[in-house]
Design a protein around this nucleic acid. Structure first.
Length: 121
DNA sequence: CATCGAACCAACC
DNA sequence: GGTTGGTTCGATG
């Protein structure tokens, strides 16, 4: 269980953070992607940690980790067999348009905060 | 808009 | 205690 104090994450296990991150990733709609930093901010951890978690993700395929990219729109990385190439393919199948420099337009990138609070609520 | 470099946080060796 | 990693931000071409 995640323990927060004054909006600050004080105590948590890697697995717990991972599950929270997975949940957030799962609620990202197709055709849209989110960033490591967005998840990191919501969970109160460092973006690097999110990358580390997704890299060691316990539940591949079940978790659309391919919908998570870097804040500048680049794909970042992918731990699965296909690597970033596979990731790029999946994104394109979902309708995400990449620039010639393998970058995703800002319009396709959403913050999880927007998804959680912006749409409705 | 694309590319380079320096900073950050945590895990790993 | 030092290095690396699925990052980020700011500055320059």
């Amino acid at each position: 269980m995640l323990a927060y104090k004054d909006g600050r994450l004080v105590k948590a296990s890697l697995g717990d953070i991972a599950e929270a991150a997975y949940m957030l990733i799962q609620l990202v709609p197709p055709g849209r992607v989110t960033t490591y930093g967005s998840i990191a901010r919501l969970l109160g951890v460092s973006p690097r940690l999110i990358g580390r978690i997704l890299a060691s993700n316990k539940r591949p395929i079940i978790i659309p980790c391919h919908r998570v990219v870097k804040s500048d729109g680049s794909l970042g990385g992918y731990s699965m067999k296909g690597g970033v190439g596979f990731k790029e393919r999946l994104l394109r199948l979902e309708g995400v348009r990449l620039t010639r420099n393998k970058r995703i337009p800002r319009e396709n990138i959403i913050d999880l905060c927007e998804e959680l609070c912006g749409g409705k609520n």
